[in-house]
Design a protein around this nucleic acid. Structure first.
Lengths: 205, 205
DNA sequence: AATCCCGGAGAACAGTTGTTAACTGCATGG
DNA sequence: CCATGCAGTTAACAACTGTTCTCCGGGATT
């Protein structure tokens, strides 16, 4: 099934990845709408025109980055949310998972948080779509919990969205926090989710 | 107390305001980090060098925009949160206030949401500071409520932050929503805040 | 072995950018 | 009423931008 793709295509994918990496690094201190094509090619060490062999524009580079940053994450979080354990345990595990992910891929998080409301429409749309899929998956995971008995679809979706937004904000806050502040951020995020979880238990009248 | 300031300074403030307005308009479809000095002066209809008479750089223009967008808002929301009425009523009034503000100053909201995680450090810091002050004010307003009896400061601050973030996200969602989607956004936001409010009531063990 | 395909290089294009210096006109304060 | 201060102008600078066209070399295909 998986062809060992030729030297040619392998090299192409390699430089393509180099573009993605270089762009991600440059985007740590600026937004996508100010990222120049030449700037990226310079960082990769390649001629400006080579860029067009891979992306029509920097906006499409951005869309590719969205895939890279969020595409692989789906199963991970959904799995955590649906894992066994009581509420508090699940919350702590989720927050810890977020913290680890931030430590491992800080540039990805920064990029998503920044461009979610950024100036490039195409990228905003791509992020919104991924987060919507994300929310839907969290919703079906939440639906498995016994606490969700009697909940209608709309309310479940609302809760899932609340959780997803909370996760993203926590991740973003961790990025901006100094090492000694991080514990405080984690504790605050945990308390937030705990409060939401309490609200969830008493939602049905 | 209020001097009728001379023709000179009046004209200066007038063009300064023109800079702010033009920049805000341009920032609807791009981020501050890509906003050019010449771009702004062109929009105002003034020579590029005139810019320096008012701001050292576009980043400082951004900081001034933060003041304009968030500076006046303090008393408004705090007043709403501390207003009388039961929980649900207060929530609906708050959401409605947000919706009206978005309708009235959409560009301001867009700017804040975009640059909160944007690529310009100075502006991010300015927004963070304003939102922190904001959160503190909401906290003292929440402290007045009878439901807050027995709450410690940390938890109150946590709740206030949750509310503030929720308000900003709601405002941002309203911006991206088409006219016919807006009611749905408002209802979803209301349910979110209701759930948080329920969690609040059952927070103390 | 001869051919095609295609990722990348090179050069050139018209515009744009931020910043400098030296100027002009006019409201202002003595 | 005159001298000063200062918002805004003009001109010029080197550096940078995205995009086009032409070319090259070597893996892929037959």
């Amino acid at each position: 099934m998986s062809h060992t793709l030729g030297v040619r295509q392998a090299q192409k994918q390699k430089t393509r990845q180099a573009f993605l990496d270089a762009a991600l690094a440059l985007l740590e201190e600026q937004s996508l709408s100010s990222l120049g094509l030449r700037e990226v090619t310079r960082a990769v060490g390649v001629a400006p025109t080579a860029f067009y062999r891979h992306f029509p524009s920097t906006a499409d580079l951005g869309v590719a980055l969205v895939e890279e940053a969020l595409g692989s994450l789906h199963t991970v979080i959904a799995g955590t949310v649906s894992a066994a354990g009581d509420g508090d345990e699940r919350i702590e595990r989720t927050v810890e998972l977020i913290a680890r992910h931030v430590r491992e891929y800080p540039a990805h998080i920064r990029f998503i948080a920044r461009e979610r409301n950024g100036g490039v429409q195409k990228v905003r749309a791509a992020i919104a779509e991924q987060l919507a899929r994300f929310t839907a998956e969290v919703k079906t995971a939440l639906a498995q919990h016994p606490e969700s008995a009697g909940w209608n679809d709309d309310d479940l979706l609302m809760l899932a969205g609340l959780y997803v937004d909370q996760m993203l904000m926590t991740a973003s806050n961790l990025l901006d926090a100094s090492p000694e502040e991080q514990d405080q951020v984690i504790r605050a995020a945990t308390r937030r989710m705990r409060l939401i979880s309490i609200g969830r238990r008493h939602w049905l009248r």
